[in-house]
Write a protein that binds this DNA or RNA. Structure first.
Lengths: 138, 138
DNA sequence: CTTGAACCTCTAGCCACTAGAGACATTACA
DNA sequence: TGTAATGTCTCTAGTGGCTAGAGGTTCAAG
Protein backbone atom coordinates (compact mmCIF):
# COMPACT_ATOMS: atom_id res chain seq x y z
CA UNK A 1 0.00 0.00 0.00
CA UNK A 2 1.41 3.39 -0.93
CA UNK A 3 0.41 7.01 -0.91
CA UNK A 4 -0.66 9.18 -3.82
CA UNK A 5 2.79 10.80 -3.80
CA UNK A 6 4.46 7.41 -4.17
CA UNK A 7 2.11 6.51 -6.99
CA UNK A 8 2.86 9.84 -8.61
CA UNK A 9 6.60 9.18 -8.53
CA UNK A 10 6.28 5.69 -9.93
CA UNK A 11 4.09 6.71 -12.84
CA UNK A 12 5.26 10.25 -13.53
CA UNK A 13 1.70 11.45 -13.21
CA UNK A 14 1.26 14.51 -11.04
CA UNK A 15 -0.68 14.22 -7.82
CA UNK A 16 -3.53 16.56 -8.77
CA UNK A 17 -3.85 14.76 -12.07
CA UNK A 18 -4.36 11.44 -10.27
CA UNK A 19 -7.11 12.98 -8.21
CA UNK A 20 -8.58 14.42 -11.39
CA UNK A 21 -8.63 10.97 -12.97
CA UNK A 22 -10.51 9.71 -9.93
CA UNK A 23 -13.13 12.44 -10.29
CA UNK A 24 -13.40 11.62 -14.00
CA UNK A 25 -13.98 7.97 -13.16
CA UNK A 26 -10.79 6.65 -14.76
CA UNK A 27 -9.24 5.71 -11.46
CA UNK A 28 -11.42 3.81 -9.01
CA UNK A 29 -12.12 5.54 -5.71
CA UNK A 30 -9.08 4.77 -3.64
CA UNK A 31 -9.12 3.17 -0.22
CA UNK A 32 -8.49 5.65 2.55
CA UNK A 33 -6.54 5.67 5.79
CA UNK A 34 -8.34 6.57 9.01
CA UNK A 35 -7.10 10.10 8.35
CA UNK A 36 -8.75 10.18 4.91
CA UNK A 37 -5.61 9.86 2.79
CA UNK A 38 -5.65 7.71 -0.34
CA UNK A 39 -3.78 4.40 -0.38
CA UNK A 40 -3.04 2.41 -3.52
CA UNK A 41 -1.95 -1.12 -4.33
CA UNK A 42 -0.55 -2.87 -7.39
CA UNK A 43 -3.89 -2.74 -9.16
CA UNK A 44 -4.01 1.02 -8.76
CA UNK A 45 -0.50 1.32 -10.10
CA UNK A 46 -1.32 -0.77 -13.15
CA UNK A 47 -4.46 1.14 -13.85
CA UNK A 48 -2.66 4.45 -13.70
CA UNK A 49 0.15 3.17 -15.93
CA UNK A 50 -2.44 2.13 -18.45
CA UNK A 51 -4.05 5.56 -18.36
CA UNK A 52 -0.73 7.33 -18.59
CA UNK A 53 0.36 5.27 -21.55
CA UNK A 54 -2.91 5.82 -23.35
CA UNK A 55 -2.77 9.57 -22.69
CA UNK A 56 0.78 9.63 -24.03
CA UNK A 57 -0.58 8.12 -27.21
CA UNK A 58 -3.14 10.89 -27.36
CA UNK A 59 -6.26 8.97 -26.40
CA UNK A 60 -8.94 11.19 -24.87
CA UNK A 61 -10.24 10.64 -21.37
CA UNK A 62 -13.46 9.40 -22.92
CA UNK A 63 -11.67 6.88 -25.14
CA UNK A 64 -9.69 5.64 -22.18
CA UNK A 65 -12.91 5.25 -20.26
CA UNK A 66 -14.19 2.97 -22.99
CA UNK A 67 -10.96 1.00 -23.10
CA UNK A 68 -11.10 0.44 -19.35
CA UNK A 69 -14.65 -0.76 -19.59
CA UNK A 70 -13.57 -3.18 -22.30
CA UNK A 71 -10.79 -4.45 -20.06
CA UNK A 72 -13.35 -5.27 -17.44
CA UNK A 73 -15.73 -7.05 -19.80
CA UNK A 74 -13.37 -9.08 -21.93
CA UNK A 75 -16.00 -10.64 -24.19
CA UNK A 76 -15.64 -9.04 -27.61
CA UNK A 77 -13.32 -6.47 -26.13
CA UNK A 78 -10.64 -7.03 -28.74
CA UNK A 79 -12.68 -5.92 -31.71
CA UNK A 80 -14.00 -2.84 -29.97
CA UNK A 81 -10.60 -1.90 -28.59
CA UNK A 82 -9.04 -2.23 -32.01
CA UNK A 83 -11.72 0.03 -33.38
CA UNK A 84 -10.89 2.71 -30.82
CA UNK A 85 -7.18 2.41 -31.51
CA UNK A 86 -7.73 2.55 -35.26
CA UNK A 87 -9.84 5.66 -34.99
CA UNK A 88 -7.15 7.22 -32.82
CA UNK A 89 -4.61 6.32 -35.47
CA UNK A 90 -6.75 7.90 -38.13
CA UNK A 91 -6.98 11.08 -36.09
CA UNK A 92 -3.22 11.17 -35.73
CA UNK A 93 -2.72 10.69 -39.45
CA UNK A 94 -5.14 13.49 -40.22
CA UNK A 95 -3.30 15.81 -37.87
CA UNK A 96 0.02 14.91 -39.46
CA UNK A 97 -1.29 15.69 -42.91
CA UNK A 98 -2.59 19.02 -41.84
CA UNK A 99 0.60 19.91 -40.05
CA UNK A 100 2.68 18.98 -43.07
CA UNK A 101 0.73 21.47 -45.16
CA UNK A 102 1.25 24.11 -42.51
CA UNK A 103 4.91 23.28 -42.34
CA UNK A 104 5.38 23.83 -46.06
CA UNK A 105 3.48 27.08 -45.99
CA UNK A 106 5.23 28.41 -42.92
CA UNK A 107 8.66 27.53 -44.18
CA UNK A 108 7.89 29.25 -47.46
CA UNK A 109 6.66 32.32 -45.62
CA UNK A 110 9.60 32.41 -43.20
CA UNK A 111 12.13 32.10 -45.95
CA UNK A 112 10.55 34.91 -47.93
CA UNK A 113 11.88 37.64 -45.69
CA UNK A 114 15.30 36.34 -44.82
CA UNK A 115 18.06 37.49 -47.14
CA UNK A 116 16.97 40.20 -49.47
CA UNK A 117 16.27 43.52 -47.94
CA UNK A 118 12.93 44.85 -49.16
CA UNK A 119 12.54 45.91 -45.59
CA UNK A 120 9.44 48.04 -45.72
CA UNK A 121 7.30 45.24 -47.12
CA UNK A 122 7.56 42.27 -44.79
CA UNK A 123 6.79 39.09 -46.66
CA UNK A 124 5.58 37.32 -43.52
CA UNK A 125 3.01 40.00 -42.85
CA UNK A 126 2.08 40.30 -46.50
CA UNK A 127 1.52 36.56 -46.75
CA UNK A 128 -0.71 36.52 -43.73
CA UNK A 129 -2.67 39.45 -45.02
CA UNK A 130 -3.24 37.95 -48.42
CA UNK A 131 -4.18 34.34 -48.73
CA UNK A 132 -3.67 34.52 -52.48
CA UNK A 133 0.05 34.55 -51.88
CA UNK A 134 -0.22 31.02 -50.55
CA UNK A 135 0.83 28.01 -52.56
CA UNK A 136 -2.02 25.79 -51.52
CA UNK A 137 -5.07 25.55 -49.30
CA UNK A 138 -4.79 25.09 -45.58
CA UNK B 1 -20.26 49.36 -44.11
CA UNK B 2 -21.57 45.95 -43.24
CA UNK B 3 -22.85 44.07 -40.23
CA UNK B 4 -21.06 41.47 -38.17
CA UNK B 5 -23.09 38.76 -39.92
CA UNK B 6 -21.90 39.98 -43.31
CA UNK B 7 -18.33 40.06 -42.09
CA UNK B 8 -18.78 36.56 -40.73
CA UNK B 9 -19.96 35.27 -44.11
CA UNK B 10 -17.14 36.91 -46.01
CA UNK B 11 -14.41 35.57 -43.75
CA UNK B 12 -15.86 32.28 -42.55
CA UNK B 13 -15.33 33.36 -38.99
CA UNK B 14 -18.30 32.82 -36.72
CA UNK B 15 -20.05 35.82 -35.26
CA UNK B 16 -19.28 35.10 -31.58
CA UNK B 17 -15.67 34.50 -32.54
CA UNK B 18 -15.43 37.95 -34.09
CA UNK B 19 -16.76 39.46 -30.87
CA UNK B 20 -14.28 37.35 -28.95
CA UNK B 21 -11.42 38.72 -31.05
CA UNK B 22 -12.61 42.21 -30.21
CA UNK B 23 -12.57 41.45 -26.49
CA UNK B 24 -9.10 39.92 -26.87
CA UNK B 25 -7.93 43.08 -28.59
CA UNK B 26 -7.22 41.51 -31.99
CA UNK B 27 -10.05 43.34 -33.68
CA UNK B 28 -10.38 47.07 -33.01
CA UNK B 29 -13.56 48.19 -31.31
CA UNK B 30 -16.06 48.46 -34.13
CA UNK B 31 -18.11 51.50 -34.95
CA UNK B 32 -21.72 51.19 -33.86
CA UNK B 33 -25.08 52.11 -35.33
CA UNK B 34 -27.45 54.24 -33.28
CA UNK B 35 -28.93 50.93 -32.17
CA UNK B 36 -25.54 49.71 -30.87
CA UNK B 37 -24.84 47.19 -33.61
CA UNK B 38 -21.33 46.79 -34.96
CA UNK B 39 -20.53 48.06 -38.45
CA UNK B 40 -17.37 47.21 -40.36
CA UNK B 41 -15.54 48.54 -43.39
CA UNK B 42 -12.79 47.23 -45.67
CA UNK B 43 -10.15 47.72 -42.99
CA UNK B 44 -12.11 45.53 -40.59
CA UNK B 45 -12.48 42.88 -43.25
CA UNK B 46 -8.76 42.87 -43.97
CA UNK B 47 -7.87 42.69 -40.33
CA UNK B 48 -10.15 39.75 -39.76
CA UNK B 49 -8.83 37.95 -42.85
CA UNK B 50 -5.34 38.39 -41.49
CA UNK B 51 -6.35 36.94 -38.14
CA UNK B 52 -8.22 34.09 -39.75
CA UNK B 53 -5.31 33.20 -41.95
CA UNK B 54 -2.85 33.30 -39.05
CA UNK B 55 -5.13 31.16 -36.88
CA UNK B 56 -5.41 28.67 -39.72
CA UNK B 57 -1.65 28.45 -39.67
CA UNK B 58 -1.82 27.72 -35.95
CA UNK B 59 -0.56 31.04 -34.59
CA UNK B 60 -1.80 31.72 -31.07
CA UNK B 61 -3.88 34.76 -30.23
CA UNK B 62 -0.85 36.16 -28.46
CA UNK B 63 1.41 35.68 -31.48
CA UNK B 64 -1.18 37.30 -33.72
CA UNK B 65 -1.34 40.21 -31.32
CA UNK B 66 2.38 40.69 -31.77
CA UNK B 67 2.13 40.41 -35.53
CA UNK B 68 -0.58 43.04 -35.63
CA UNK B 69 1.49 45.37 -33.53
CA UNK B 70 4.36 44.87 -35.95
CA UNK B 71 2.08 45.70 -38.85
CA UNK B 72 1.31 48.99 -37.21
CA UNK B 73 4.91 49.90 -36.46
CA UNK B 74 6.67 48.84 -39.64
CA UNK B 75 10.20 49.79 -38.57
CA UNK B 76 12.12 46.56 -37.99
CA UNK B 77 8.87 44.63 -38.22
CA UNK B 78 10.25 42.21 -40.76
CA UNK B 79 12.90 40.70 -38.58
CA UNK B 80 10.59 40.31 -35.61
CA UNK B 81 7.78 38.91 -37.73
CA UNK B 82 10.09 36.37 -39.28
CA UNK B 83 11.18 35.32 -35.81
CA UNK B 84 7.57 34.68 -34.79
CA UNK B 85 6.89 32.73 -37.97
CA UNK B 86 10.05 30.68 -37.56
CA UNK B 87 9.22 29.78 -34.00
CA UNK B 88 5.74 28.78 -35.14
CA UNK B 89 7.34 26.61 -37.80
CA UNK B 90 9.56 25.00 -35.21
CA UNK B 91 6.56 24.20 -33.06
CA UNK B 92 4.81 22.61 -36.01
CA UNK B 93 7.86 20.48 -36.82
CA UNK B 94 8.09 19.30 -33.23
CA UNK B 95 4.45 18.30 -33.26
CA UNK B 96 4.89 16.42 -36.51
CA UNK B 97 7.81 14.46 -35.11
CA UNK B 98 5.89 13.51 -32.04
CA UNK B 99 2.84 12.50 -34.02
CA UNK B 100 4.93 10.35 -36.36
CA UNK B 101 6.18 8.37 -33.39
CA UNK B 102 2.64 7.95 -32.16
CA UNK B 103 1.51 6.92 -35.60
CA UNK B 104 4.05 4.13 -35.78
CA UNK B 105 3.20 2.88 -32.34
CA UNK B 106 -0.54 3.05 -32.87
CA UNK B 107 -0.41 1.33 -36.21
CA UNK B 108 1.68 -1.43 -34.68
CA UNK B 109 -0.78 -1.79 -31.83
CA UNK B 110 -3.84 -1.74 -34.06
CA UNK B 111 -2.45 -4.33 -36.39
CA UNK B 112 -1.58 -6.64 -33.50
CA UNK B 113 -5.14 -7.74 -32.95
CA UNK B 114 -6.49 -7.86 -36.44
CA UNK B 115 -6.20 -11.23 -38.11
CA UNK B 116 -5.24 -13.93 -35.69
CA UNK B 117 -7.79 -14.89 -33.14
CA UNK B 118 -6.21 -14.94 -29.67
CA UNK B 119 -9.41 -13.32 -28.63
CA UNK B 120 -9.16 -13.44 -24.84
CA UNK B 121 -5.92 -11.47 -24.79
CA UNK B 122 -6.47 -8.25 -26.66
CA UNK B 123 -3.20 -6.93 -27.99
CA UNK B 124 -4.41 -3.33 -27.95
CA UNK B 125 -5.25 -3.51 -24.28
CA UNK B 126 -2.12 -5.48 -23.46
CA UNK B 127 0.05 -2.93 -25.24
CA UNK B 128 -1.51 -0.07 -23.36
CA UNK B 129 -1.13 -1.89 -20.08
CA UNK B 130 2.52 -2.71 -20.64
CA UNK B 131 4.83 -0.09 -22.03
CA UNK B 132 7.54 -2.72 -22.46
CA UNK B 133 5.62 -4.05 -25.43
CA UNK B 134 6.35 -0.81 -27.23
CA UNK B 135 8.98 -0.52 -29.92
CA UNK B 136 10.29 2.87 -28.87
CA UNK B 137 9.77 5.72 -26.48
CA UNK B 138 6.91 8.13 -26.83
C1' DC C 1 6.15 15.10 21.08
C1' DT C 2 7.29 18.17 17.78
C1' DT C 3 8.23 19.57 13.29
C1' DG C 4 7.93 19.63 8.45
C1' DA C 5 6.52 17.36 4.50
C1' DA C 6 2.79 15.34 2.38
C1' DC C 7 -1.95 15.12 2.10
C1' DC C 8 -6.99 16.79 2.02
C1' DT C 9 -10.98 19.62 -0.38
C1' DC C 10 -12.42 23.41 -2.86
C1' DT C 11 -12.23 27.02 -6.16
C1' DA C 12 -10.43 29.35 -10.08
C1' DG C 13 -7.56 29.73 -14.16
C1' DC C 14 -5.56 28.24 -18.77
C1' DC C 15 -6.76 28.44 -24.33
C1' DA C 16 -9.78 29.47 -28.07
C1' DC C 17 -13.71 29.24 -28.65
C1' DT C 18 -19.05 27.66 -28.47
C1' DA C 19 -23.82 27.61 -26.74
C1' DG C 20 -27.70 29.55 -24.74
C1' DA C 21 -30.78 33.04 -22.43
C1' DG C 22 -33.34 37.03 -22.70
C1' DA C 23 -33.69 41.55 -24.67
C1' DC C 24 -33.33 44.96 -28.46
C1' DA C 25 -32.57 46.42 -33.67
C1' DT C 26 -33.14 46.05 -38.38
C1' DT C 27 -35.21 44.74 -42.64
C1' DA C 28 -38.59 42.91 -45.99
C1' DC C 29 -42.86 42.84 -47.25
C1' DA C 30 -48.11 43.78 -46.96
C1' DT D 1 -47.18 52.30 -41.43
C1' DG D 2 -47.52 47.76 -39.16
C1' DT D 3 -45.76 43.46 -38.29
C1' DA D 4 -43.12 39.40 -38.42
C1' DA D 5 -38.81 37.25 -39.17
C1' DT D 6 -34.26 37.52 -38.72
C1' DG D 7 -30.19 39.55 -36.88
C1' DT D 8 -27.76 41.48 -33.14
C1' DC D 9 -26.76 42.78 -28.31
C1' DT D 10 -24.62 41.45 -23.55
C1' DC D 11 -23.86 38.18 -20.20
C1' DT D 12 -22.87 33.75 -18.26
C1' DA D 13 -21.34 29.13 -18.41
C1' DG D 14 -19.35 25.07 -20.64
C1' DT D 15 -15.63 22.45 -23.40
C1' DG D 16 -10.85 19.29 -22.36
C1' DG D 17 -7.22 18.14 -19.54
C1' DC D 18 -5.18 19.61 -16.57
C1' DT D 19 -2.57 23.22 -13.13
C1' DA D 20 -2.19 26.53 -9.24
C1' DG D 21 -3.32 28.19 -4.92
C1' DA D 22 -5.70 28.74 -0.34
C1' DG D 23 -6.46 27.05 3.98
C1' DG D 24 -6.67 23.16 6.73
C1' DT D 25 -5.40 18.10 8.40
C1' DT D 26 -2.43 13.90 8.79
C1' DC D 27 1.57 11.34 8.64
C1' DA D 28 6.47 9.83 9.54
C1' DA D 29 11.04 10.88 11.21
C1' DG D 30 13.84 12.25 14.85
Amino acid sequence: MFSIGELSKRTNVKVPTIRYYEVMGLMPEAERTSGNQRRYDKAGLERLSFIRHARDLGFSIEAISSLIELQEHPDRSCEAATKIATSQLEGVRTKIKRLRTLEKELSRISKGCDGEGVSEDCYVLASLADHNLCDREH
